[in-house]
């Protein structure tokens, strides 16, 4: 898998995939998409780089240990329970704010489900990459744990 075309293609496609994955998260509440799908797509971008240039390059590109990303994602997702709990509703009840930014007619709605989706996104990216990187590397020596 060290062909020049594949390498160059991966470099060009990977950022696009990350961008599309972010779009999927944002529109996911009402339309097809969401944190899980977005996370998988984003992970596939890094997996592409790992295939084209090796796991080391993909790890450097990610900059953060995948398992730590899982932890951060879980923290974000669990954090989305807090606003509802403080306001006196059942945990994870969706709370929304409407922001009138550029178009007065259609305000931007932001809410805790989006935060939860972001957490899911990070968690999925982390878990998927942890698995992919581990399996790619494990041909010589299987590291302990997942």
């Amino acid at each position: 898998m060290r062909s020049v075309i594949f390498k160059a293609g991966a470099r060009a496609v990977a950022p696009l995939l990350v961008l599309v994955s972010a779009l999927l998260v944002v529109r996911g509440h009402n339309e097809p998409g969401g944190g899980f799908v977005g996370g998988l797509l984003c992970a596939s971008a890094f997996a592409l780089v790992a295939l084209a240039e090796g796991v080391g390059a993909a790890r450097r590109l990610l900059r953060i240990e995948p398992l730590r990303l899982v932890g951060i994602g879980l923290l974000v997702a669990l954090g989305s329970a807090i606003p509802a709990a403080i306001a006196g509703f059942a945990p994870f009840t969706g709370l929304w704010v409407s922001l009138q930014l550029w178009d007065k007619a259609s305000p931007v709605k932001l809410g805790t489900p989006l935060v939860f989706d972001l957490g899911v996104y990070l968690t999925v990216v982390g878990i998927a990459l942890a698995m992919i990187f581990t399996l790619e590397e494990s041909d010589d020596d299987a590291p302990a744990g997942l």
């Binding site: 398992l67 899982v70 932890g71 879980l74 923290l75 669990l78 945990p91």
Partner: peptide
């Protein structure tokens, strides 16, 4: 929900810190 959320939160911290 606290008996579920507290250890889950701690698991996330154990990974992230």
């Amino acid at each position: 929900m606290l008996p579920i959320l507290v250890p889950l939160l701690a698991a996330a911290l154990a990974l992230a810190l």
